[in-house]
Every structure is written in structure tokens, then in C-alpha cells.
Design a binder for these strands. Structure first.
Length: 199
DNA sequence: TAAACGATTAGCT
DNA sequence: GCTAATCGTTTAT
């Protein structure tokens, strides 16, 4: 499992290194990260912490390795991994992963039939990631590990990583803070690359 | 206390 | 490509 020290660095440094790592929820399942986005504490208007701490974003200011979960559009549960030192609002949003066996429980969480499943649709897109892993607001603010039941593992996989602008935001669009597994078939559909967007 | 707004997705055209 | 769904947080009155 990745140590706290791994996350105790700026999120734009941590994010590309997370590609290929395994996210795993105890008793549920998980897969290899294929797409993430970094949110910065300074000069990033899209970061939830840009205007200070509130009840909702409190976990974002926690120590590195904290889980920050919030509800998007009143519907979707989005998973973030808090980076940098405590009190610095910096995190990585998990946008997609390539599923690893077994997928039955994740498929069930998504309301899909495991036998008639389009594997690519299981966990690409941040809302689908939260749903597949069965996450909810109760683990917001908990650390990675046994307390939250969510872990990140490194088995030495080192895939090629590309970058682009982030998805679904209206400010800070000039920053190239989305990182993805080049050539992966498990990327969110919202992430269609614009011409010249690649690094 | 009220109103507006999403770091989205699914379903339909 | 377009939009309804859906609700907690934030911001304005």
C-alpha cells in the first residue's frame, strides 16, 4: 500500500504517478487507475479549497492520504485523495480505473448484470468510480487504509502517461492537470482531447 | 430563508 | 448533441 509520504507532495506531482496504481475497496473490488486530475491550493480557481475551508471541503485540508468525498450534481459521489501537508487544500480526483477481477460486486453496485456487462462502462467517469466502489459520504475525511476500507497499491506497473486540461470545470481550464494512461480504453467520455491539448 | 449551482450521467433525438 | 434528474453547499437577501 502507498504510504502517507507518497501523498505528502504537490498534487500535480502525485497525480501522474498514480496512473497504473491499484485502487481497492475491501470486500468490494477495484482496478488500475487510468485517469486522474490534480487540484492545486494556489492559483487554481477550480479547487474546492480556493475560497477557504467550509463544512463540505473540510477533509480537503486534512493530512496527506485523507479521503475527500463530496456529492456532485446532487447525484454522484466523487473520490479525491488529499495531497501535500495538512492545512494545504490539494487533492487528486479519481476519474476512471480499469477493473480487476472480481467485478461482480462492482457491477452490482452499478446496477449492471455482470454477465451482460460492457466492461468499459463499469468504472470510467468519476461518478461511476464512486458508484462501482460503493462509496458514500460516511468515509469523507477518513484516512486511506483500514479505517476507510480503501487502499492504493503499487505492483510496479509503469504505464505511459499523457496530460490535458481538466474536464467539467469553468475556471482554471488553461491548466494541464488531467493525467491519463495513454492508449487506455478506460477513459471518461468527457475527456475527449481537443486538438493540441496533448503534451 | 430562498435561490442558484455544480470536478456528472443516462437516455433520447 | 441536448437535457432532465437530484440535493447538499454556498451565496445572496
Amino acid at each position: 500500500m502507498l504510504e502517507t509520504s507518497f501523498f505528502d507532495r504537490p498534487s500535480d506531482v502525485v497525480a501522474p504517478e498514480l496512473i497504473g496504481k491499484i485502487v481497492w475497496r475491501a470486500g468490494v473490488g477495484g482496478g488500475r487507475l487510468t485517469e486522474v486530475e490534480a487540484y492545486l491550493p494556489l492559483g487554481d480557481p477550480a479547487c474546492h479549497g480556493a475560497r477557504g475551508m467550509t463544512r463540505r471541503n473540510r477533509a480537503l485540508f486534512g493530512p496527506p492520504g485523507t479521503i475527500y468525498i463530496y456529492l456532485s450534481y446532487g447525484v454522484h459521489v466523487l473520490l479525491n485523495l488529499v495531497c501535500d501537508r495538512e492545512s494545504v487544500a490539494s487533492a487528486v480526483l479519481v476519474r476512471a480505473f480499469e477493473p480487476l477481477e472480481p467485478i461482480d460486486l462492482m457491477a452490482r453496485n452499478r446496477g449492471l448484470d455482470p454477465r451482460a456487462l460492457h466492461l468499459r462502462d463499469l468504472s470510467r467517469g468519476p461518478g461511476r468510480v464512486g458508484q462501482a466502489l460503493g462509496l458514500d459520504l460516511r468515509i469523507d475525511g477518513l484516512p486511506l487504509g483500514t479505517a476507510s476500507g480503501v487502499a492504493l497499491l503499487d505492483d510496479g506497473e509503469r504505464p505511459p502517461v499523457g496530460s490535458s486540461s481538466r474536464v467539467g470545470i469553468s475556471e482554471g481550464t488553461e491548466l494541464q492537470l488531467r493525467f491519463y494512461w495513454e492508449g487506455s480504453g478506460y477513459l471518461s467520455r468527457g475527456g475527449k482531447l481537443r486538438r493540441g491539448d496533448e503534451r
